[in-house]
Amino acid sequence: MSSQYLDLIRNRRTIYALGKNISQTPDEIVTLVEQAVEHAPSAFNNQTSRVVFLFNEHHDKLWDLTADRLHTVVPDEKAFENTKNKLMSFKAGFGTILYFTDTEIVKNFENQFPLYAENFADWAEQNQGSTQFNVWTTLANENIGASLQHYNPLIDTAVKQAFNIPDQWQLRAEMPFGSIENPAGDKDFMAKTDRFKVFK
């Protein structure tokens, strides 16, 4: 059996120490990511995922507005300083990918297929998972580090205002990416007997 695909997915790790020292241009990254997004499976091929690319001052703006928003909810200045340092490590990267779900498409399919209506929101989340994994693995294959963050829904309103996001797009995740300034450590796995059942 070929292990080529498994090698690719093993290479995808969470990278927090990001930099701007990558060889690809923004246009090259956009082209790669667009293909990864387009080939993610979705229920009824309804393609509910949406992606926004942030580079340069737009990337910086996201993490600055996230810091401003979190400053209003983190209980004290010492705790906020730790939070801000984490956010600035994302800002140190080359760019950010924002993932959204088009809720209008979800609602349209709920109306068209009432028998399955209660499933379409879950299926949209499954499309998000496939989309994000495809992109993350694609970036890792280009030696670009990334992590997946979830500051939504705290920053939803600010993001929509800052980047002119349609009302029906719901923010699901933020993916800062850039050069790998410090690799991920070893990864632990739970016992296979606790995770898998095989009947044959």
Rank of each mutant, 00 (worst) to 15 (best):
T83S: 06
N119A: 00
K200N: 14
D27P: 03
S49Q: 11
D27W: 04
R13Q: 10
I165D: 08
G129N: 06
E110Q: 12
E110W: 02
M190T: 11
P183D: 09
N143Q: 01
Q126D: 09
A79R: 07
M88K: 12
N141G: 07
E125A: 13
A184H: 00
A124V: 14
Q35S: 02
E28V: 06
N111H: 06
A146G: 10
E142Q: 12
Q112K: 07
A92V: 03
K78P: 07
P26G: 12
R50E: 12
G178N: 05
M190A: 12
Q132I: 15
Y99N: 06
Y16C: 07
R172N: 08
F189H: 11
I29T: 12
Q149N: 14
Q126K: 05
L6G: 10
P166Y: 07
A79W: 04
N56V: 14
T157G: 07
Q4R: 12
A162R: 10
P75H: 03
F163A: 05
A184W: 00
A121N: 06
E181M: 08
V30A: 01
L18T: 02
T137H: 10
T193Q: 09
A173H: 13
V159T: 03
N141D: 06
D194M: 04
S179Q: 01
I105H: 13
G129L: 03
H59R: 04
K78Y: 10
I105P: 09
N82S: 02
R13D: 08
N134G: 04
N164Q: 08
I144F: 01
S89K: 15
N152H: 06
K78G: 07
E125S: 13
F90H: 10
N11A: 13
F90N: 13
Q35P: 05
D7N: 11
Q35I: 14
N21V: 04
A67G: 01
A36G: 03
N56S: 15
I9R: 10
P183L: 04
K200I: 09
A140I: 06
L148K: 01
K197N: 01
D60Y: 07
H59D: 12
A173D: 13
V37I: 15
E38F: 15
F120H: 03
K192A: 14
Q112G: 05
N182F: 12
F44N: 14
A158P: 02
R10N: 13
I9A: 02
R13G: 09
E174F: 00
S3H: 09
